[in-house]
Design a protein around this nucleic acid. Structure first.
Lengths: 188, 188
DNA sequence: GCGTTCATGTAACTGGTTACATGATTTG
DNA sequence: CAAATCATGTAACCAGTTACATGAACGC
């Protein structure tokens, strides 16, 4: 059982669903490819954490609906209070920022300006998703025991993190504007 | 050339160094294992991006010091303005937060309280690193074209992100305290 | 006609982790 | 006397990506 398997299992516990559903639900919060989802699902089925049944459809491909077993329920029950495996972040921009001294001041600033553009785009996408969510629950969200609640709090987190990152980029650009100041004393 | 290879190459361009040095410099900002560093370094050498020479030492193991070639310099010159490959974040806690509705209100709050503890620890480590950095440059950092500058701005970013995450957790706990309110209108 | 959504799967590959292997010196 | 630091490397494995494979329905 790896981290993603737990996520898949958890998604199934919120209600029976297909691999395709799981993929679409996880996508905004964890990058996943269908190839991996389907592989892990068949492993979960082999280990009897889930069962599946084929649902025939007309006009569109048939689908396999997965449901969780008792064994599966027990597994994710335990998962929640297991310590988390350390998060991994791999961001090419972090490396560029670290090595920013290899560039001159103008090029460095340009790099951070481009980053801000990228972050503003992320902000926009995040806001769009929040709006879609708001519409899908008709502007009212009172039950925290629904997937919509999880989606809502995570979108809020990403949005605020993005704001913070934009402010940080602006601060760095500001640092790069100055010459010969003591950066350690520069306010953020 | 993958992302990490560029990072390694960039580290070498800041000055000749060993695989061990590279590992220690990258560690605070990108998780790396020595096994991978050494493998990529030998690839970079095969492709003539870097050269190495053995430095014999007494009382401690010999080391291999790498230096960048013209080909390598050209490569990382181009790298800076190439669009970044999308960042990947894999955080088990994000999945738990998404699926928080599977738990009752008390257990959910407990999960976020534990998260805050974890984040406070992260904050502490980050502050320690900032202090170490401050000492190592004797409280004065005026040159942005040094690795210390990159280290400084990234530590600041992580610290502020951590503050933001703590506030977010507190906000979520607050949401979970209430019963039957419209979460979408709850201030953050 | 062309791209998107729905829907599932396999095979080959790359990137990254864990474990094995060695060994002197310093610090608590 | 144990653990950490310095220092490098290989082999087996696992997780994740890319590419291959299929195909109907629907909107632009």
């Amino acid at each position: 059982m790896n981290t993603l398997s737990y996520g898949i299992l958890g998604m199934i516990q919120t209600g029976p669903c297909s691999g395709y559903d799981i993929m679409n639900n996880l996508k905004p919060f964890r990058e996943v490819k269908h190839s991996q989802i389907y592989r892990l699902l068949s492993e979960l089925e082999n280990e009897a954490y889930v069962t599946s049944k084929l649902v025939e459809q007309s006009g569109r491909p048939n689908k396999k609906i997965y449901d969780i077993t008792e064994k599966g329920k027990k597994e994710i029950e335990e998962w929640f209070f297991k310590p988390n495996t350390p998060a991994t972040l791999r961001d090419e921009f972090v490396l560029k920022a670290y090595l920013i001294g290899l560039k001159n001041s103008e090029e460095a600033k340009e790099l951070f300006r481009k980053r801000i553009e990228h972050l503003r785009n992320k902000e926009r996408i995040c806001k769009e998703r929040l709006e879609v969510l708001q519409e899908s629950c008709e502007g009212v969200l009172t039950d925290f025991q629904s997937l919509a609640f999880g989606r809502y709090i995570l979108l809020r987190q990403v949005l605020h993190q993005t704001y913070g990152d934009i402010r940080w980029c602006e601060w760095v650009i500001d640092l790069l504007e100055k010459d010969n100041i003591n950066f350690l004393n520069y306010p953020f």
